[in-house]
Amino acid sequence: MSQSNQISKSQPIKKTEGRPNRPSVAAHRISLDQTVRKSFLVITLLPLFLIIIVTIALVIRSWPILVAYPIKDLLLGNIWRPDKGLFGFFPYIIATFWVTIVGVLLATPLCIFVSIYLSEYAHSFTRMVAKPILDLLAAIPPVVYGVWGLVAIVPFVDKVLAPLSDRWLSSVTIFKVNQPTGFSILSAGIVLAVMIAPLIISVMYEIFSTVSNDLRHAALAVGATQWQTIRSVVLPQVAPGIIAAIVLGASRALGETIAVLMVVGNVPKTPTSIFDAAYPLPALIANNYGDMMSIPLYDSALLAAALVLLIVILIFNILSMLVIQRMLRQKWAS
């Protein structure tokens, strides 16, 4: 920074003693540098503005419905009948959270174990094989996850998990099987868990590598087993980062559309069990984009749904990213 400031401040190039300079060349180069610098600065600020622009655009477009109904009625209303002028987001919001929570609960232990294994135990060969596999998993498009969910997970939930749960856990409300089709929150959760796992694992892996090896060696030297070291030395150090990684994964799960849409059943009812079908917000938006122009306030309502989603995701994202950036910066600094 400081060097560039000096160059920019000394604009009229002073003649130094003894040696004649070539003002034409230098001035040309410096002015080019400055032009580029200014124009690149504008481009660089684009991402910052883009977040704001997206938010503002959605606020403007969803304004009509936010004015027409009290926000409480929109968020807590139970009935969604756009043709009758009833816009209650509650079942959709609840469904979104259910699907996300199930996905995150399934993914969290797996991701923690895998990232611990890769960063603490694994042979470098295992790491070399596992990383590309995780990258490929992250590269698979959502719609292919949806196909997988449709062909493998939905029947699996229907034929295997639902009967099991019916037999052993039917007294617990959230495991009760009310409608046996397999298109359920659980199916969506399983698909989501696999979708967000690569991201969570890669973030956790980075976080684990911020712990200095001296600490590990100290614990191992006094006779702790490796797992004792991890549990009592490494994990407390990285706990905030682990939580942030999970929150980040949750924010991805919240917005996932196509894959969830294909396996969740899309029944607009407040779910009570993980074997119930549900209708999350992104699916609501995606399914109704076509006919939303014909009914008054409908498009505004759908964009309000997108706005709700965006705000929740922004909060999750920014909080987790701040924690992760801080932890990783410690590593860069040390």
Partner: peptide
Amino acid sequence: NYVRLSLDVLWGIPSIVYGAF
């Protein structure tokens, strides 16, 4: 780091919201 943060946040915005936008 602010710019990096904003990029990471943009990365996290779901495509359905981009679609709506």
